[in-house]
């Protein structure tokens, strides 16, 4: 990851980062919005993953449920990106040297790849064609990966 160090140094030196750190309320305000968005995001992921696992809203057709969840999923993710960015740039070197930051980003990359490929196709397919096995694999993998993202995120600030 040595090649990324200059990039992180550049982020930390941005006027935006300096301004962000110089104000008392910027960090907590952005953090609380980030956290509320996490709950919204997780709810819209979890309800579909639970459905894939065969629990929860099993009487609602999968494509219908996934479509209902989608605006909240995308909306919350955009808020997470917007509120995550200043937290990343203002503490760029802390993030760079934290193993949990890289853990979080790797888990998020895998979770997003799963979401926009296999999981997306699955939630748009007639369930009769899916069989009993693969939806469960995708559901549990999605839950595990997003849990790993949150665990890594929380530990950046602690350890």
């Amino acid at each position: 990851m040595d090649a990324a160090l200059p990039f992180f140094q550049w982020m930390g030196a941005l006027p935006m980062s300096q301004y962000f750190l110089s104000t008392v309320w910027s960090t907590p305000i952005v953090q609380v919005i980030h956290l509320v968005a996490i709950a919204t995001f997780v709810g819209s992921v979890l309800i579909v993953d639970m459905r894939l696992l065969g629990v929860g809203l099993t009487e609602t057709p999968l494509p219908k449920l996934a479509r209902s969840a989608e605006p909240w999923l995308i909306g919350a993710f955009i808020v997470l990106l917007i509120t995550g960015l200043p937290q990343l740039t203002s503490t760029a070197l802390k993030q760079y040297y934290s193993p949990f930051f890289w853990w979080k980003m790797e888990a998020m990359l895998l979770a997003l790849i799963l979401m926009v490929t296999v999981r997306r196709r699955m939630t748009r397919t007639d369930e009769a064609d899916l069989g009993p096995f693969w939806p469960k694999v995708v559901g549990i993998t999605s839950i595990a990966l997003w849990s790993a993202v949150i665990i890594g995120a929380r530990l950046i600030g602690l350890l």
């Binding site: 997780v42 709810g43 819209s44």
Partner: peptide, 21 residues
């Protein structure tokens, strides 16, 4: 403390997300 806090955040997200739904 880190274990409890991490469990607290993960369960909060699950609970908060489902109740928001």
């Amino acid at each position: 403390y880190p274990i409890l806090l991490t469990l607290h955040v993960v369960s909060m997200a699950a609970f908060g997300g489902l109740i928001a739904l």
